[in-house]
Amino acid sequence: MGTNDRKKIRNDIILAVVLLAVAAAAMLFWHFGKVEGDFAVVLIDGVETARYALDTDTEVVIHTDNAGENTLVIAGGKAYVGAANCPDLVCAGHRAISRVGETIVCLPHKLVIKITAASDAGGVDMAA
């Protein structure tokens, strides 16, 4: 193995370590910087259609384009998708969310459920 190959492998390792370190730092920042939210906001195609308080247990069916249906469940201060008729069911498999900024996304239905704080007036803030 030539010195050039050795150098490349060293660079590979540096690249992997830097990426993992940045992700770890971001994860720590995310973990400690986030607070529990107050509302689960429903966005269809980027437009807010409803919001539900996390302190009230409820179950609602969200209707999206093309007869899409996702059941939003709020229980014990957390929100999750209980059932859906999308093809991949990624949203239904997603863990429950409760912190400000967390989202559950259903790509086929262009649906986003996101957690916000009470102070957030709503709407979409692309600068966030």
């Binding site: 992700a23 971001a26 966005l43 980027g46 967390e102 989202t103 790509l107 986003v112 692309m126 600068a127």
Partner: peptide
């Protein structure tokens, strides 16, 4: 693309986990 199509910047935080999985899978 998800951030653009869904107009929801918050989705960006998935990138944290996906950076780790992308790195490991890439190796």
């Amino acid at each position: 693309v998800a951030m653009l199509l869904l107009e929801t910047a918050e989705i960006g935080y998935y990138m944290i986990v996906l950076a780790v999985s992308g790195t490991v899978a890439g190796i």
